[in-house]
Design a protein around this nucleic acid. Sequence first.
DNA 1: ATAAAACTAGACCGATTCGGTCCTGTATAG
DNA 2: CTATACAGGACCGAATCGGTCTAGTTTTAT
Lengths: 157, 157
Amino acid sequence: MVRLGKLTDYGLVLMTCIARSRVALRTARDLAQESRLPLSTVSKLLKELLQSSLLVSHRGIKGGYILARDPHQISVLEVIAAIEGPMALTECSTDITGLCNLESACPIKSNQQIINQAIRGVLEKVTLSDLAHPLELTPLRDAKGRVVPIVASGRIQ
Amino acid sequence: MVRLGKLTDYGLVLMTCIARSRVALRTARDLAQESRLPLSTVSKLLKELLQSSLLVSHRGIKGGYILARDPHQISVLEVIAAIEGPMALTECSTDITGLCNLESACPIKSNQQIINQAIRGVLEKVTLSDLAHPLELTPLRDAKGRVVPIVASGRIQ
DNA sequence: ATAAAACTAGACCGATTCGGTCCTGTATAG
DNA sequence: CTATACAGGACCGAATCGGTCTAGTTTTAT
């Protein structure tokens, strides 16, 4: 349902790879080998992640990529936004005149905002280090203090 | 980024319409007029919502649709799943033999599960009545007891 | 200096999915 | 029995996605 796209998944995998082995610069060729992805795709993704200032690159021989920040300071929301682009919150087609000029608040826009903000709020809380070490997730709690299941114990469909 | 698809949005709007005016059965033609959507699309969506047991239908003249449960007992997760289909959690292409038979846990699958469960956990908490009356959202709190912003006060990006 | 390694940028295309429409049934009230 | 409204498909154009390729630039080792 809430598809993230394969490329976004690959991007998260690459960021996780870099986060885990942060000893030196990782080259695109190297990451392609570790992640079993074609080099062209890896290069494309690293490029996009670089343009969003999530990575820092060093050129030339002995070059490579490194995380711009610590893994626990990079949220998956940023990674997703870097690859899929910022979410189009203003999707209300304002060019079709007269249809959306209702006096009441637009219900579509309201729904989108509520749901998008809910998803954003959660994705902001999940960081790269959570993906690298899935056991140390900081649990969310609802209004009654109960833990909101994140990894397991939720119904699967 | 985390696109929900226009049809899913329309479905949420329709469900909200039905939830708000739950006095009698709402006909597809009626809902199409209120939501300003083409009748064909509305019929298609109502059909899918019906097959997921979120609506109850009555045929014949004087027929129509009605919510199967109370608005606060229908989560937006169910509505989304009804229209977009259940999320493909088992997307790991097992047909490409040998590539995914690594001894370590598959990082892609792990990432997907973590993120999907996070999103599911939140969408399960938002109900139709929250969409109908956006002011009464029950706030989520993180591990430190602070309120997780859902509607406002989050950066818009 | 020079060549090799590695990043940078963008065009490009096939395949898949999405949004949307239409048509033919079937059931029910009057 | 007939008009109304739901039921369940098939169907198609368009937009997007996943993925590849080519050409160019920067840096370092020798």
